[in-house]
Write a protein that binds this DNA or RNA. Sequence first.
DNA 1: ATAGAAATGACAGCGCTGGTCATCTATTAG
DNA 2: CTAATAGATGACCAGCGCTGTCATTTCTAT
Lengths: 341, 341
Amino acid sequence: MKVTINDVASHAGVSIKTVSRVMNNEPSVRKDTYDKVMAAITALQYQPNAAARNLASNRSFSIGYIYDNPNAYYVIDMQRGLLDACRKHGYELLIHPTNAKSPDIVQEVIDLVQQSRLAGLVLTPPFSEMPHIAEALEKIGVHFVRIISGSTPSPKLSNCVLVDDFTAAFKITNHLLELGHTDIAFLCGDEEHSSSGERLAGYQAALTKRGITPNPKFIVPGSYSFESGVKGAKQLMNLSKKPSAIFACNDEIAAGALFSARLMNIAIPQQLAIAGFENSPFSRQTWPPLTTAHQPNVTIAQQAAELLFRHAKPNASKMLSDKQPVFIPELLVRESTAVIG
Amino acid sequence: MKVTINDVASHAGVSIKTVSRVMNNEPSVRKDTYDKVMAAITALQYQPNAAARNLASNRSFSIGYIYDNPNAYYVIDMQRGLLDACRKHGYELLIHPTNAKSPDIVQEVIDLVQQSRLAGLVLTPPFSEMPHIAEALEKIGVHFVRIISGSTPSPKLSNCVLVDDFTAAFKITNHLLELGHTDIAFLCGDEEHSSSGERLAGYQAALTKRGITPNPKFIVPGSYSFESGVKGAKQLMNLSKKPSAIFACNDEIAAGALFSARLMNIAIPQQLAIAGFENSPFSRQTWPPLTTAHQPNVTIAQQAAELLFRHAKPNASKMLSDKQPVFIPELLVRESTAVIG
DNA sequence: ATAGAAATGACAGCGCTGGTCATCTATTAG
DNA sequence: CTAATAGATGACCAGCGCTGTCATTTCTAT
């Protein structure tokens, strides 16, 4: 029924201490001893008692994922990736959706870490971009990895996984330019999310490179929501000089813009091209389907967790392969964008 | 830094065992002793060490949520509700997305329970409807709660939270009938999900009650996916006798049907009414927004977890209020359905 | 005053790790 | 081929922070 480390030890013909050494990847275990122990572990289907390990070693085998993101698809993908990595390394994942704007969010995060005695934490926007969160976590000495918008690895960002929104936004804008559009508008996401700023910068850079000065009236502030897209598109299409294309900061905004266009009887893509960002499932389910940029969120999450484990594991290979992953979302052309008509 | 039960004991002037009694809601603690201990706990901000508790008591303070559902919104809502209840009761939630069709799914579930030493499990469709899963869980003596489709509580379903899909589907169909539709088609979800069957039954019952014999050609098998809706609607609109309304088994299918109608230049709701089910966020983001039925998933999940804790907690009030919750999704009328034109 | 119940405490031990040595086994230099 | 050295392993113990068991104390009702 219940297999303990003692059973493994006697089955393998070694001491319980040696089994412990194997379990914890300690050095000074000969190859064949290691194999013997592993065989016994497999044969008996030994599963170490996490509670006992935690208690004795005063470390823990669970990491936390803190998020506040209205995008369910994004969250689910992140969870998937984190879980994959956790299973591989024998860790557990504790999810913690919460409100980033809560006044005592820092305390809440600290409580979570201490209450659950987490080995580490993974942060996505907006948490990954809140300096006081990072400071607090550093102060209590907890490992954490941030997934943030950025293109250039640097030592300061050693615990970050970068997503190059700038370059991806540049590519999308370029795609619109190549279709012949010159009056391209941009619907921003939340200002707090640096991804919005990065995407805007990529958009502006692409225009500038083409010798087009970005028109301030074409840049509409907003948030990462359907409603924001509805409002933004309406505002744009009421301008005396209307854009011929809209680049929305994410698919949800783009879907809102599409909705708005429908209300105003504007044909997509004939009268107006619309592009999104993220490749969330419903970008395929709008009519017409959205041109967008695909972010490999599951893989991003996996890498983030791997990075965390590298930092957090005592006996693992610390130094090597500590290169920072940078992901560039890929352009995905669908029917919502077309040659200017 | 680290407050242990010893600190609380000496601060309160009682033995460590008494503190333990208070922590575990054991009887035989006098009121004033209890208060003293509670005061000490608060003063010192004591947080019990879960690992030590697990180890000593051989029980655990985490429950698992096993799911295989492509609907991210549903999953996120369920997680929310479960987490709410977990926080309230001091439990942790381990999520476990997996593939319900995997051949050794039963073993996988058992492994999960034993590996993580779970106190209990929450199952949603399709897992909640797989008899061999329930059997296996009963055999290893683990508590679990199922969220299933149904309308009548019964002792056999004592560990279930019921969602009355039948009645909700009846209401939606009735809504279409009241708008004057008589040729109403039904797009099914996956056969494995009993919700699909229940909704179909509700649809048929409503028709029958109105004296309409359900037309077999109007009942299209399918699955809970956008693509299925696309295909189903296409098939229906190619019939010589077309329906004037489509009731899709969920919003995603309905969105697919909408998409299909758009492709065929069919105006919604003027030429064809479409209704969905679930009230997922994108049912508001289609054009036109979908008439649907709202399922209070967060609350459902909370209730499920509460039910689980009632069963799993040793010293809690076991018998009382063991009534089974039944939820009836509410009709939500939006622009995708209208009087027959 | 005394039985009986209720409240409390003393103590062992959950399964594992970390530390300290002592012992044993390979490898290498001489 | 042996001695010296480093590496591998085991024996042993304490203890992580808590709970279960059972003995003891304190209360309550007669």
